[in-house]
């Protein structure tokens, strides 16, 4: 992105929402296109392997069903992440219940996050992924939202249900832990 275009503000989400409410379907396409991939990234970093598309779609459907209640006191993206986070938790709980009734081998008992390791060919990428996988769930959420989305601490705090100060501490602790893990080689 060039210096010139970086500071140009796109149409605000709230304006697109208003256009969609007046029946403009293109506004919905723009909103989904703007946020869908970020939601998919977040789902994957939270250990979702299958049905990422479906999860992202459910997030948007739920959000659009209750857009009337969206007060814009936070950004639409933050609101979408909050919805997605709840859906991810629901799915993980559901999977845990299924695991409790089906006997699984030792390989499946490790953290969900490690299940993506097979997709990573590069040894360095594997090490980075392992370093992130070792973080606590809350640290991992804060760290990935900060690193992959550049989300401000105030918005991260809304998504994970914490405070801005606590999120800052979680991020720096996570960064330190990742550095230490990678420097142990």
């Amino acid at each position: 992105m060039s210096e010139l275009t970086r500071d140009i503000e796109p149409t605000p989400d709230i304006a697109l929402i208003a256009r969609w409410q007046r029946g403009d379907q293109r506004a919905a396409t723009e909103l989904v296109g703007r946020h869908a991939q970020a939601l998919a990234r977040f789902a994957v970093t939270q250990g979702i392997r299958d049905g990422v598309d479906e999860l992202v779609q459910d997030t948007f459907v739920r959000a659009f069903h209750s857009l009337e209640s969206f007060r814009a006191d936070s950004s639409l993206r933050t609101w979408l992440f909050t919805i997605l986070k709840r859906l991810v938790l629901d799915r993980q709980r559901s999977e845990q219940r299924q695991r409790s009734t089906v006997e699984l081998d030792e390989e499946h008992a490790v953290q969900d996050f490690n299940a993506l390791d097979g997709m990573v060919a590069d040894e360095t990428l594997l090490r980075v992924r392992q370093a992130v996988a070792r973080l606590s769930p809350l640290q991992r959420e804060v760290f990935t939202l900060r690193v992959t989305e550049g989300m401000p601490y105030t918005e991260i705090a809304r998504v994970v249900g914490s405070t801005e100060g606590a999120c800052r501490v979680h991020y720096h602790n996570a960064m330190r832990a990742v550095k230490e893990y990678l420097s142990d080689d």
């Binding site: 396409t29 991939q37 998919a40 990234r41 994957v44 990422v52 598309d53 992202v56 997709m119 992959t148």
Partner: peptide, 11 residues
Amino acid sequence: TLTRGVPRVDV
């Protein structure tokens, strides 16, 4: 690393 292998969402 984190964004690798993320499926493309069908908008």
